[in-house]
Write a protein that binds this DNA or RNA. Structure first.
Length: 404
DNA sequence: CGGCCTACG
DNA sequence: CGTA
DNA sequence: GCCG
């Protein structure tokens, strides 16, 4: 139900953080259902669908539309803020500032002399028409080939993995996310900078926001070794040439566009290999899935989860990291493989935004790790249980299967 | 009635 | 403030 | 707005 997303957006513009979140949760639950809701009975007992959201749904089911939603769609302020925030680098605050100045269109922003755009926003406006167009799976794969070639030229043993929405089975996305890693610990140091340099040499780097590893020896003498490796990531805009895209459709572009290329938003992340499982988890899940997982970690397990590790607050160490260190096997391969297999048993759906079909194809090609290692088994067991215990979509799907 | 993900620049 |  |  796109309606819930619209209500969430409207709440966000009204600075109502709570309702915004509630509507997003509701949207997430509805998206995870195997089919569209036909009557109110079908959503009995589902989480995050309370009095208000149900009332809106009833309105739509009986009249085909909701008065409140129609009102929001027509609202001048909502339309303007939606337009402004669609620009890369422009959030609710900046959009609000422009709206209060009486500005209503993108052209008015660009012609207003008193407005100072930052680097991100300048890129956002410069490539606006391209970036706001959907990216197809074929285009994502084409970019994967280009980047992979560049990466292999630098480090032949490096592995590039498609993550984000495309890994969840989506056909279109607003950007393309990749994870880049090397089998040997530490060899990923500086790799990303090297890759960026090569992309620049090739003339396809249109914009680059690099977030280098924040390591400063003078600044953190007290910090432990474990704390220093915030892995590298970068937000890019790349130039994708026509003819590099496979398939009969080729490039996504407007009729009458004869440039022969388009700009695409690309994210590159380069974690050390022992953090691969966490990076993959973090960058494959949707925004909402990540929130659910991290909330669960903190509230239910007294742990802290991020894209690098799972931190146990009671034990004061990185719980899985210790286990990972003590095993000779590339343990992340094993945990992701089992996790993926477990997920697919229960979640045959692959085509919605909120169901991260955790990727296992790459692992399938390699051998099945030998059993009998108690560390492997323990990590696998805890990891699987952890995910399943909080997977909102899992709960929803389970509910549909057994309670209706 | 308080909390709502967590990290980076 | 913005990005994921 | 929904939940614990």
């Amino acid at each position: 139900m796109d309606v819930m997303e619209e209500l969430a957006e409207s709440s966000e513009f009204n600075e109502s953080k709570g309702p915004c979140l509630a509507f997003r949760q509701a949207a997430s639950v509805l998206k995870s259902l195997p089919s569209a809701v036909r009557c109110l009975g079908a959503i009995q007992g589902l989480p995050w669908l309370g009095e208000h959201t149900k009332a809106v749904m009833e309105e739509i089911l009986t009249f085909g539309r909701s008065f409140k939603v129609e009102e929001i769609r027509c609202d001048e302020r909502y339309q303007a803020l939606k337009l402004f925030t669609s620009v890369f680098g422009v959030g609710p605050k900046t959009a609000e500032k422009w709206y209060r100045r009486g500005l209503r269109s993108l052209k008015e922003i660009l012609t207003e002399p008193n407005i100072q755009l930052n680097r991100m926003q300048r890129a956002g406006f410069l490539y606006y028409s391209d970036i706001s167009k959907a990216v197809s799976k074929a285009e994502a794969e084409a970019l994967g080939c280009i980047i992979e070639e560049t990466v292999h030229w630098i480090a032949p043993d490096a592995v590039l993995a498609l993550t984000g929405g495309f890994r969840r089975g989506k056909e279109y996305g607003h950007d393309v996310d990749f994870l880049l890693t090397v089998p040997e610990m530490g060899k990923e140091e500086g790799l990303l900078l090297h890759v960026i340099d090569r992309l620049r040499d090739q003339g396809i780097l249109l914009y680059c926001d690099h977030q280098g590893s924040t390591f400063d020896v003078s600044k953190l003498p007290s910090c432990r070794f474990e704390d220093m490796d915030h892995f590298q990531k970068c937000f890019l805009i790349l130039r994708l040439e026509e003819g590099q895209v496979e398939g009969e459709r080729g490039l996504q572009r407007d009729p009458g566009d004869s440039r022969g290329w388009r700009a695409v938003r690309v994210d590159l992340v380069a974690p050390p290999v022992d953090r691969y499982a966490f990076a993959l988890l973090g960058w494959t899940g949707s925004k909402q899935f990540g929130r659910d997982l991290r909330t669960f970690a903190r509230k239910e397990r007294q742990m802290l989860l991020d894209n690098h590790a799972l931190y146990d607050k009671t034990k004061r160490n990185y719980s899985y990291r210790r286990l990972l260190r003590r095993t000779s096997l590339p343990i992340w391969v094993w945990s992701m493989w089992s996790l993926g297999r477990e997920m697919h048993k229960h979640l045959p759906l692959t085509d919605t935004d909120t169901i991260p079909t955790l990727y296992i194809q790459y692992i399938k090609g390699s051998q099945t790790p030998s059993l009998g290692n108690t560390f492997c088994h323990e990590v696998e067991r805890r990891f699987c249980r952890f995910i399943k215990a909080n997977f909102l979509q899992f709960y929803t799907f389970w509910h549909v299967l057994f309670n209706i």
